[in-house]
Design a protein around this nucleic acid. Structure first.
Length: 278
DNA sequence: CAGTACGCCTGGTAGC
DNA sequence: TGCTACCAGGCGTACT
C-alpha cells in the first residue's frame, strides 16, 4: 500500500519516464475515479498537454501539465502507473490510458479502484480535499519538535491512529506507523498527549529517518505495490514489526502481538512498547 | 470540535 | 473441491 516512500518512488520514476512527454489522447475506462470532471471533460481538458514534471505532497502526486494545470493523483491502496508501448493490451485493472505522442502509453492501474484523480489549476491544489488540511512533510526542516509538542498535547487519541491522521503529519500509513512506534518503544494505544518530550523527540527522528531509509530502498512492497517501472521495492526486508505477528521481537525476542486499533491491524512488542508511562 | 464507524473495491485465503 | 466469510487499509463522509 503506497505510503510516502512509495509515492515518492513513483514520482521519481514518472519524472524520468514521462517528464517532457506530450499527451495525444486519453481513454477513461473507469470514470468514477475522476473526482471533479466527467470523462469527456478530462479527455478534452488534458489532451495535447505536455507532462512537465511530477511533484508530491504527502501521499498525493501532483502531475504538472503545460498550461498551468495539475492532476492531483492519489494512489490510495493499490494504485500504480506503468509505461508501455502503444497498443499493449490493457490489463483487467487499467482505468486510465494516456496515449503519448512518442508511441508509448502511460497507464493508471488500480485493482481495488480506490485511487482518485482531480484536475485543478496549478497552485489551486490545496483546494482539493485532503490537501486542504494536510500536515507538514516529515522532514528535518518541515517537521518541528515544537509543532509536535503542540499537536500531541491537544489530543487524547491513541498515538497510532493519531500518526495516521494526514492533517497532523503527512505521509505515514499503517506500515510505517507501526514501525516508528516500535523503533521509539511507544505502545500504539498510548494517548497522544501522554507522550513525554523525550519520546516525541525520539519519535520525530525515527519518523524522519525511517521514511528517508524507505525512500532509499525504493519503498516497501506489500500486496501489489510497484513503481512506474513495474518494479517492487525492497524495504519490506527491513521491516521490524509490520507483518511479524508471533515472530520474535528483533530487540528482545518477545513474540510480536497484533491487535485491531481504530479498524487497523496494529503490530507491536508487548515487552518493549509498554502501555504505562515511564 | 473531536472522535469513531462505515463504505468504497477486489483478490487472496481461512474455514467448512 | 467448491463455496462462503472475512481481511487487507487510505480517506471521505456521516454520525455521535
Amino acid at each position: 500500500m503506497p505510503e510516502l516512500p512509495e509515492v515518492e518512488t513513483v514520482r521519481r520514476g514518472l519524472n524520468e519516464l514521462v517528464g517532457g512527454s506530450e499527451i495525444k489522447t486519453i481513454e477513461v475506462l473507469y470514470p468514477k475515479m475522476l473526482n471533479n470532471l466527467t470523462a469527456d471533460q478530462f479527455i478534452a481538458t488534458l489532451s495535447g498537454r505536455t507532462i512537465e514534471k511530477v511533484d508530491r505532497r504527502g501521499k498525493y502526486l501532483l502531475i504538472r501539465l503545460s498550461g498551468d494545470l495539475t492532476i492531483v493523483s492519489h494512489l490510495r491502496m493499490e494504485g500504480n502507473y506503468d509505461v508501455v508501448p502503444e497498443g499493449t493490451t490493457p490489463h483487467k485493472h487499467t482505468h486510465i490510458i494516456f496515449h503519448l505522442t512518442d508511441g508509448r502509453e502511460l497507464r493508471y492501474n488500480d485493482t481495488r479502484k480506490f485511487g482518485r484523480m482531480a484536475v485543478v489549476n496549478t497552485g489551486d491544489e490545496y483546494t482539493v480535499s485532503g490537501l486542504k488540511t494536510i500536515g507538514p512533510e516529515p522532514t528535518e526542516k518541515t517537521l518541528k519538535l515544537e509543532y509536535m509538542e503542540q499537536i500531541f498535547a491537544k489530543s487524547k487519541k491513541a498515538v497510532k491512529p493519531f500518526l495516521l491522521d494526514q492533517s497532523k503529519i503527512a505521509g505515514l500509513g499503517n506500515i510505517y506507523a507501526d514501525e516508528v512506534l516500535w523503533m521509539s518503544k511507544i505502545h500504539p494505544e498510548r494517548p497522544a498527549n501522554s507522550l513525554t518530550i523525550a519520546e516525541l523527540k525520539e519519535l520525530r527522528s525515527n519518523i524522519i529517518l525511517e521514511l528517508q531509509k524507505a525512500i532509499a530502498g525504493h519503498g516497501t512492497t506489500v500486496h501489489s505495490y510497484s513503481n512506474a517501472y513495474g518494479e517492487a521495492g525492497s524495504f519490506q526486508n527491513q521491516l521490524n514489526v509490520y507483518g511479524r505477528e508471533g515472530e520474535p521481537c528483533l530487540r528482545c525476542g518477545t513474540p510480536i502481538v497484533k491487535i485491531k486499533l481504530a479498524q487497523r491491524g496494529t503490530h507491536f512488542c508487548p515487552n518493549c512498547q509498554v502501555l504505562t508511562e515511564e
